[in-house]
Design a protein around this nucleic acid. Sequence first.
DNA 1: TCACACTACCAAACCGCTTTGGAATTTACG
DNA 2: CGTAAATTCCAAAGCGGTTTGGTAGTGTGA
Lengths: 341, 341
Amino acid sequence: MTLKELSDLLGLSPTTVSRALNGYPEVSEATRKKVAAAAHAHGYAPNTRARALATGRAMAIGHVIPISAKHEMVNPIFADFTAGAGEVYSRNGYDMLMSVVSDDDEEQAYRSFATKRNVDGLIIHAPSLNDQRIPFLNDLGLPYVVHGRSSNATAPYAWVDVNNTRAFQRATELLLDLGHQRIALLNGLEHMDFAARRRAGYEAALASRGVDPDPSLMFSGEMTEAQGHDLTRTLLARPDRPTAILVSSMIMAIGVRRGIEELGLTLGRDVSLITYDDDLSYFRNGSDIPVYTATRSSVREAGRRAAQMLIDIINGKDSPTELLLEAELTLGMSTGPARRG
Amino acid sequence: MTLKELSDLLGLSPTTVSRALNGYPEVSEATRKKVAAAAHAHGYAPNTRARALATGRAMAIGHVIPISAKHEMVNPIFADFTAGAGEVYSRNGYDMLMSVVSDDDEEQAYRSFATKRNVDGLIIHAPSLNDQRIPFLNDLGLPYVVHGRSSNATAPYAWVDVNNTRAFQRATELLLDLGHQRIALLNGLEHMDFAARRRAGYEAALASRGVDPDPSLMFSGEMTEAQGHDLTRTLLARPDRPTAILVSSMIMAIGVRRGIEELGLTLGRDVSLITYDDDLSYFRNGSDIPVYTATRSSVREAGRRAAQMLIDIINGKDSPTELLLEAELTLGMSTGPARRG
DNA sequence: TCACACTACCAAACCGCTTTGGAATTTACG
DNA sequence: CGTAAATTCCAAAGCGGTTTGGTAGTGTGA
């Protein structure tokens, strides 16, 4: 069913039918009703491609999912972020276009979106400290929103981020309040912006209490379960082992827990643990009392906010283009007072 | 840069330029070279929307991500499946269109894809035993491939699936070989096809050894960590507690492990555990020796195969439209001989 | 009654590409 | 050399919508 067929059926011109369906005022209420009814009855919906060509708007947003070439790893938060963004898109009539590329080819993917003109905007994930995509995209002229920030960026850009510094500062302070002095940090890769900020928060808390940071307690790497386990085993084998561990991801925390329990130690009693929790839908942190004490922030909500921000930008609304979400610190069973050595 | 601009620049007609770029024979090698060079130099790529309109092909595949309205849960395997499929799509010039919908609205989402004509095919996830989407999509006339199968479907359909029955049969046999008699099954929701097949495999193995299945050891529900933990606690509190547990998902297995260890028991010694492992990139099962004994199959590879199958169907190749992948059974540290009561 | 402003509709151009149906030029052959 | 067959290119017609620039028809005020 095309517009022309529908208009022939109604004895109207395509112009009028189009206007009726798109809510233009130059059409009487009576015919608008008739048109709407007929469209519904015959299951007519405008062909996206034709409409996009005529309006110059693709009504689609592009997400580039980079895959670490080395580790073939997909960031586990994409699914939930995407779900949040997707809600907003469909509510606003936008499609979501995903492009899965090896992280070497990422720039090419953006360029291709731009020249092929099949999206109206982009969401950028996982920015590094000095992310080259930002100047690149500023040149490209396609609107975009970054999920996260890039500390060293010089030009302005739109972003939605969590206050990673504050979150880790508060978590560290809680551990210090509980009497912990040797606190290990299992962080993400430190060229990533979020990881650098988390470390800054951790160090700030230590500094404010006059505790010297011990570089041998600080790690950064891929946030996998195995990594969490292995690092924990190494850490706890030391004579001067830490009494608390601060972890950048729930998945890694699970590995930490495994390491702790393999040694016959009890989480929350022998070793305290606070983790960052992205509130992933398939990995809720306990049912009633959280298993892990955690700084929590919904990545799904971040997806919703970023999507809305991007749509606003595309539509020329001058709403704020920077949004800092606070993480909440929820007490679970993985923290307790430091035990006297 | 449009085709017309490029052709003006070259002093050629749009026709010739289009043909040169698309590899049609009616153009001399010399001009083809010239055109290709100019296109590259000016960064020209055809406007997807216009091309789609002209050719009648969207060059895009739709994925509908249903979100459980009740639990707001995103299936964690989507990310990896998507990554696999995405690789194949981009290699073949296809885009991937995602639509996130509450599972009540799923049919509407397919219909919308069909009437708006913005995809050439669909991938269907998580089929139930008697999935209504199959007859619905057969009527709709949009090619599709199902990730999984629907046992009660009457009409034929294209699918890529893992041999769930065989996988769970072998896993159960291994436990029986180790002397376990009371084996619990923590399964997914049993209206889902994969869960029903896994149970069938489990029951077949028990039957072949003359072990009576005990319905009180069989559970089905959402495969979350919390669920795994809670069920395990309940099971192990029983006087006639099972000596082994068979679990349908790695994430659930982590909860099972937590439950076991909270009771001061040791995994692989006091209680054996085999899990289904989808080989998720962010949750590799141990580094050298797997933590869990598992029936493993790469959901990423399934994504690749399903995508290729769909593209073949769209292009009218008559390659096979049914693909059954076998899971491998890998030994980890979570299984051991049954201990004498 | 006439000019003027609305209202309700429509014809045709356009978005940027592909493709059909020639037309012009070159090559091949008797 | 003349003609048939290739070769190489192009004009124009779609694809299915939106949008510009009208034109009838109705209502208002002088």
